[in-house]
Design a binder for these strands. Structure first.
Length: 330
DNA sequence: AAAATCAGCAACCGCAGTGAA
DNA sequence: TTTCACTGCGGTTGCTGATTT
């Protein structure tokens, strides 16, 4: 027994929207809003459409400031970086790209960006063979650097008192103290994440952390801007996820070493996001249909050890979801 | 020129989370 | 505490135009 359908499928129109339907829906919402109830909206508007269909049409096509067309390099970079770190959480990724919808980004990734990355990777493989000794040497160095970083940035790990205004930090690794996330349960309630892969920082702390970085800025909910932190994640095992295509050829990238990743010291391995481990273990990034699945081996060269990362590194990457959620509430 | 294949993308489906009753 | 309607999201489908054979 499944759940009841949201509408009478026999009596609703499906398929592409006509210009008339678009203008009806747009005019109604602009005048009256959604009323917080999509299910009853079609009836009010006079459309023979499912409420979910109306919602989708509005969010993906009709609402103001929707951006269609070519993605910029900067947008490519943001999508790549976030996908590599948080996976296919398209709504979160969309929150970083004003005017873009999650559906747009999902389609763009599946049809073009992924291929672009794979092509890029193939070219690199042809040009620059890997060596095991290089991997091991750099991993050790990275781990040492990482230890030093945390030793000198204790405020990041030990700041347990949070001012009221908070934004979400999502991390590739769980924070040193998982209670950080628990302590913000009221906020975490608003976001659908497990407590092990998120932690909240106040805006003050965020700006303090980001003050040394060199990456593009990002708009916060209150209108302030904050720079993206670092040029990649900085997980405790020393693996750094690159910030995208532009830096792609600048680093002596090495592939992710499965054994090394799984056998890092206990405290480190415990902090590696389990989804990453799953990807590594399965050697596959789950995408959509089977023929579109992407091998982790193929994409792993995006996981880099860029030497320059230590000059400006901060261990976390920021992203902000509330702007997008705000749009949804409009 | 026609058929087959591919690529892009809009739209749908169904699950999970949420909150009100 | 439970139930259920509703929303939001990610995965998937299928249509359409472009390209290749």
């Amino acid at each position: 027994m499944g759940r009841a359908p949201c509408c009478d499928k026999a009596n609703v129109k499906r398929g592409p929207w006509s210009p008339e339907e678009d203008s009806k829906l747009k005019a109604y919402i602009e005048q009256h809003g959604t009323g917080g109830n999509w299910i009853t909206l079609p009836q009010k508007v006079g459309l023979k459409r499912c409420g979910k269909s109306c919602r989708l049409r509005w969010l993906n096509y009709l609402r103001p400031n929707i951006k269609h067309g070519e993605f910029t390099d900067e947008e490519d970079n943001i999508i790549c970086t976030l996908y590599m770190s948080i996976g296919s959480r398209w709504s979160i990724i969309a929150a970083q790209l004003p005017g873009r919808t999650d559906n747009d980004i999902k389609n763009y990734w599946n049809t073009r960006l992924k291929k672009k990355l794979l092509l890029c990777n193939k070219q690199r493989k042809d040009q620059r063979p890997r060596t095991g000794s290089y991997i091991n040497h750099n991993k050790l160095e990275m781990m040492k650097e990482h230890e030093n970083f945390f030793a000198t940035h204790q405020t990041i790990n030990n700041a347990y008192s949070w001012p009221s205004q908070q934004i979400l930090f999502s991390t590739l690794i769980a924070p040193q103290n998982h209670d950080l996330a628990e302590s913000s349960s009221a906020n975490s309630h608003n976001f659908q994440y497990s407590s092990t892969d998120q932690v909240y920082f106040s805006q003050d702390q965020l700006c303090q952390i980001s003050s040394t970085n060199q990456l593009p800025s990002m708009n916060l909910v209150n209108g302030n801007t904050c720079n993206m932190v670092s040029n990649g994640y900085y997980p405790s095992n020393g693996v750094v996820i690159n910030n995208g295509l532009q830096e792609y050829n600048n680093y002596n990238s090495v592939g992710l070493d499965h054994d090394a990743l799984n056998s890092t010291s206990t405290t480190h391995s415990q902090q590696v996001d389990k989804s990453v481990l799953e990807m590594v273990n399965s050697s596959t990034i789950s995408t959509t249909s089977q023929d579109q699945s992407t091998s982790w081996e193929e994409l792993s060269p995006l996981v880099n050890y860029p030497p320059s990362v230590f000059e400006t590194v901060s261990p976390y990457y920021v992203f902000e979801e509330q702007r997008y959620m705000g749009l949804l509430k409009q």
